[in-house]
Amino acid sequence: MNGISNSNDIIPTFDYTGKIRILESSNFEQSQQLKDQCREFVDKITEFSTIVSSFLDLLKEKSEQIEKEKLKAIGLRNKAEKEAENRKILEQRLIILIKERKAEFDRLTAQYDSLVKIEQEQASFIETLSGK
């Protein structure tokens, strides 16, 4: 080089505390402020990330609870629908049973009436035979 300092050359300087700095003190202070601001930004991003992570965990937990309750509701609905079908089947069976019992009752009533009639005829026949 020709002895003339280029603007790109690094020139050491001293700050107000007497420390050697490669940057000028104003640039160094600005870089320190930028460093502090970056650190604050990173801290805030980390905090935000933690909050988002907690929120996502909470959402996942709630979605699992919702899914569980949804399946439970579907099961209860299916059970209720099945119960309605079971009641209809039971009602049909009971109607058939009632009809069968009524038919049996009618048959037994007719048989009873027939036996009463035969008893009366036999009593009448016995009476005529005994000559009364």
Rank of each mutant, 00 (worst) to 15 (best):
E47L: 10
E24Y: 10
E121Y: 10
D43R: 14
F41C: 14
G3D: 05
E104Q: 03
D15T: 03
I45C: 09
N8Y: 12
K19R: 09
S26M: 04
L129H: 08
S124F: 06
A110W: 02
L58R: 10
T46W: 07
A80P: 04
F105G: 05
L23A: 08
D113R: 14
E85L: 14
T13C: 04
E24F: 09
L56K: 07
E91T: 01
V52T: 12
Q122T: 06
L56A: 02
L115E: 11
L34E: 15
F14C: 08
E121W: 13
R39I: 15
S130F: 01
Q33N: 08
I96W: 03
F28P: 01
I96D: 08
R39N: 14
F105P: 02
I96R: 07
L94P: 00
M1Q: 15
D9Y: 04
Q120Y: 03
A123T: 07
R77P: 00
N2W: 10
K35N: 15
A110R: 05
S5V: 15
Q111A: 09
Q120G: 00
I95R: 02
L34R: 15
K99P: 07
E121M: 13
E104C: 01
G75I: 11
N2V: 12
E81G: 04
L90A: 04
Q120A: 04
N27Q: 08
Q92I: 05
D9S: 03
I66E: 07
C38I: 03
L59T: 12
G3L: 05
N8S: 09
G3R: 06
L108G: 07
S7W: 06
G18W: 00
Y112K: 11
Q32E: 05
K82D: 08
L56C: 04
L59V: 13
D57G: 13
L59I: 11
V42K: 14
E127Y: 07
Q111D: 11
F125D: 07
L59E: 13
L90H: 02
L108V: 09
N86W: 05
E121L: 13
L71Q: 07
R107G: 01
E67G: 00
F55H: 11
I51F: 00
I10V: 03
D113G: 09
T109K: 12
S25L: 12
D9G: 01
L94K: 04
F14D: 03
T46G: 12
E64G: 01
I95N: 04
T128R: 14
E29V: 02
N78K: 13
R21G: 02
L23H: 07
K70P: 06
E121G: 10
S63Q: 09
L97E: 00
F125V: 05
A110Y: 02
Q65S: 13
